[in-house]
Design a binder for these strands. Structure first.
Lengths: 143, 143
DNA sequence: GACTTCATGTCAACAGTTTGACACACAATC
DNA sequence: GATTGTGTGTCAAACTGTTGACATGAAGTC
């Protein structure tokens, strides 16, 4: 098997996964990007917009409009006055944590269906292999 | 390990892979989307724009402007008169096959670096696991 | 203290993509 | 043969995301 096929395979898997997630998140009024944003803010509250952008692989400009949208919908609140480095940390509102809980369930269903036919051992193996690929690619960038 | 982590891991890996591919393809004057387009046209010449769109997970409208761009750059040629179902098959020009050969080398380097530290057995394993995930998700869509 | 450097937030212009709509062309069905 | 259904190509509007630029605040350096 040519290793090049792994590239398109990763893209295909991610594309289909994204489609499924969009299908289950749309009824909740969330896009996949918005869900990723809420998820990161829940794991680490008070995080800055730029940091959020890095974690979700988008520019900080587009993350800014994304957070503004969530703010308009009353899902996040940002510190009114800037902090140390002019940064304005964002926090989830109570409404957001409720929606996020339902979104998490929906996403778990999708990912669960994806790994349905895999044993625990195989899931660990997949996790290890993908991590190795990601890290190898990340190392490649700095040299 | 929670299976949910596999979702973000797939996204992370695909994102970094996309970045690396963009870095090596940009000097050749190709975007990742354009490369994918040429690659598919090389494997199956005369393919239609809509089919191309399905294989690269974009709408047929955006694939249309993409192919138009490649046509302007003299990389693809489309049948002047529509075929059976109003379809206009596209073919690669000689210049395209030359650029594609160099692009393939560049991409092989990236994917090669990604799987550098993996044995042949592990690559096969990764391929099998990812295929299973993709197919499970694809099955999920139709029910 | 003045200077450079770096990170954040934000504005504006731009490119790429999607959604919705329409016009065809062919196949299938009645 | 008329009708319905499906697939293709294409136009226009809307959305999402990127790039470039600027102002600001904080830290380091001379």
């Amino acid at each position: 098997m040519s290793p090049d096929q792994l590239g398109v395979l990763i893209k295909e898997t991610q594309a289909v996964l994204n489609q499924r997630m969009d299908e289950v998140l749309r009824p909740l009024g969330l896009s996949v990007s918005q869900y990723a944003c809420l998820r990161n803010l829940h794991e680490e509250p008070g995080i800055t917009g730029s940091e959020l952008a890095r974690r979700t692989f988008v520019s900080r400009q587009s993350m800014n409009v994304l957070v503004q949208g969530l703010e308009r919908h009353g899902l996040v609140e940002r510190a009114p006055e800037p902090g140390p480095r002019r940064e304005r940390g964002a926090m989830l509102t109570h409404a957001a944590t409720e929606i996020l809980a339902r979104a998490d369930n929906a996403v778990s269903d999708v990912v669960g269906a994806m790994t349905e036919h895999l044993g625990q051992e195989q899931r660990n193996e997949l996790h290890a292999l993908l991590s190795a690929c990601r890290d190898a690619l990340a190392r490649e960038s700095s040299r």
